[in-house]
Amino acid sequence: MNDKNKIITGLVIFFLVVLFPFWFNLIFGTPGASTAPEAELTEKAKEAENCVEETQYMRAEHMQLLDQWRDTVVRDGKRLYMAEDGGKYDPSLSNTCMDCHSNKVEFCDRCHNYASVAPYCWDCHTYPEETE
């Protein structure tokens, strides 16, 4: 009736599963992963200083803004976005955002990958080819 070995084996397997993040990061992890990668700005973006809205707002709410853009453009046919500071923009991901942030890999993907977010924008909308 000695099932102690079985139980200990089960327990070890359970702990391996529970401790997955620890050993996974140790073996396969990216070093320095506790510091988030910085999104890199293009020259053009640096010059502009601000995005269509304040940086802090954009950081937290860019997906909400894009969501609003797509609805207003497609459903209401309004294609002029007037920003907080009075700037006027074409509410278009491909044509406005990607004009400045033409470096999708360094700008968008870094944070998205870090947070494991896979926006499906790119399934339809195009982005400028990366120039290596």
Partner: peptide, 15 residues
């Protein structure tokens, strides 16, 4: 942080 963000009463944001 953006009190008068999109949809606020500052007037139409889209046109």
């Amino acid at each position: 942080a953006r009190a008068a963000g999109p949809g606020s009463d500052k007037g139409p944001v889209f046109a």
